[in-house]
Amino acid sequence: MPETPILAHSGVLIASIQSALSDSEILSLRSQLLARISHKSVRGVVIDVSALDVLDSFATRTLNELASGARLRGAQTVVVGIQPDVALSMVLLGLTLRDAETALDLDAALGLLESAAGRRDG
């Protein structure tokens, strides 16, 4: 399984998860993203999960941990593309992403990060 590529675009790291990740792959993605935040002036992390048809408790927890870790390093995390049935089953399982922001898609996430940056600077 190829590693999830991480793209950087004007201070935002973008990771698009293409297929279901094993627990260790998610952990490795988390470490890589956190490592990348430190040596670039990164203000945001966007994780696209639109290709996933399930987000289990481990994945949710790891995303929450990533968001908390990123915040400590000064970056905001946005999870995008949670599918309707994935959202519903997460709610039924009591899983929430309380540390990360959510957005419909990459566009919305970038807008969200921009306005957050604007608020901070202005």
Binding site: V79, I82, A87, M90, L97, L104
Partner: peptide
């Protein structure tokens, strides 16, 4: 509402 929030709304 929670599910909607997960989808960014």
């Amino acid at each position: 509402m929670t599910a909607a929030r997960l989808m960014g709304a």
